[in-house]
């Protein structure tokens, strides 16, 4: 049994003039110690997916249907009280903006001790000791001094380290990291990503990394999901997808990277932009931007087909697979 299993999750936003569907039935699983990348551009629904897992999706958003099974128990059906025992304790979250987690008027130490005491019956002294070891673990210089500092006294990179220390505080099974390094500089980003990877490997913690940066995904994760307009359009082993993407959108995303182009030449570009939730196209949501779109694509949402170890939702890919099969039959 996988550690976390999401089945056909649908999330909506209640707005004027009806509901907008942000997640249109996504399914994936996460094993113990596995590192999963969730890739997509803004508006794809990747952050909504992350927030939905802990039922943290903010109003007017809500989970409309689907299951989120954590060790076999459905988080979507759990009461707020039960959820609180899991949040921060069994599943920890790291946000893009450290100040979403850190309270600016409390010292780092106070906040860490508070988090520990909320889930465990221990003395303040013991909690402080645990906090100190976690700060050491994230390689913060002079950790004992940091405990008595306020968040604003730390630099951006240092703050994100503290956030990771807080996430590790209760030895969670899963860390969900939502764009943890987007606000940071490249050199700091590299340090934080390396640290996160190291810590997850050390303690066999599962990591769900939400990012728009394909480079980071390929460095850190083992499997990846590509999201487009509230759907997972491709999922499988990271290396396989990066090296040989199946879905035209994933291909376009990779080919549009400047590192893929010849210097001075035009970059590959996907025309148009991600549809807004208000007017999602019928059929495959990518079809207005897709070079391979046929009549079928404009009417029906493609089912997943397997190509190698990768699941893809695309008629073009399924047609190619069919063709290959037929060719093989003819040959044999």
């Amino acid at each position: 049994m996988p550690l976390l299993e999401v089945n056909d999750l649908v999330a909506r936003f209640a707005v004027r003039g009806g509901d907008l569907t942000a997640l249109r039935g996504i399914s994936f699983s996460l094993d113990k110690g596995e590192r999963l990348g969730l890739v997509g551009e803004s508006g794809a629904g990747k952050s909504v997916a992350a927030f939905s897992i802990l039922n943290l999706i903010a109003r007017p958003g809500f989970i409309a249907s689907g299951q989120i099974l954590f060790e076999g128990k459905d988080l979507a059906a759990m009461s707020e009280r039960e959820l609180r025992k899991i949040r921060g304790n069994r599943i920890a979250m790291i946000f893009q903006d450290p100040m979403m987690t850190l309270n600016p008027v409390l010292t780092i130490g106070t906040q860490m001790v508070e988090a520990l005491k909320a889930h465990r019956r221990i003395s303040t002294r013991a909690a402080r000791d645990i906090a100190l070891t976690k700060l050491r673990k994230v390689q913060i210089p002079s950790p004992d001094k940091r405990l008595d500092q306020y968040p604003h006294e730390l630099s951006g990179g240092m703050r994100q380290r503290v956030i990771i220390a807080i996430a590790l505080l209760l030895d969670p099974e899963i860390i969900i990291a939502d764009e943890p390094t987007t606000a940071l500089d490249v050199t700091i980003q590299a340090e934080i990503m390396a640290l996160l990877l190291e810590l997850c490997e050390q303690d066999n913690v599962a990591l769900m990394l939400i990012t728009h940066d394909l480079g980071v995904v390929s460095q850190v994760t083992q499997r990846m999901l590509v999201m487009y307009s509230g759907r997972i359009i491709e999922q499988g082993p990271t290396r396989e997808i990066i090296n040989d993407a199946q879905h035209p959108y994933t291909q376009g995303l990779i080919n549009a990277l400047p590192q893929m182009g010849e210097p001075g030449e035009r970059l590959f570009q996907i025309p148009g932009s991600m549809p807004s939730l208000k007017n999602v196209p019928t059929g495959c949501p990518f079809h207005p931007r897709c070079a391979f779109a046929t009549d079928q694509c404009t009417r029906l949402m493609p089912e997943y087909v397997r190509s190698g170890n990768v699941d893809v939702a695309c008629y073009e890919v399924s047609n190619l697979i069919e063709q290959e099969k037929r060719m093989q039959e003819v040959e044999s």
């Binding site: 980003q189 590299a190 480079g215 390929s218 460095q219 590192q259």
Partner: peptide, 9 residues
């Protein structure tokens, strides 16, 4: 710079 061909930072 994180590159596509990297498997680790």
């Amino acid at each position: 710079i994180p590159k596509l061909e990297d498997d680790r930072p």
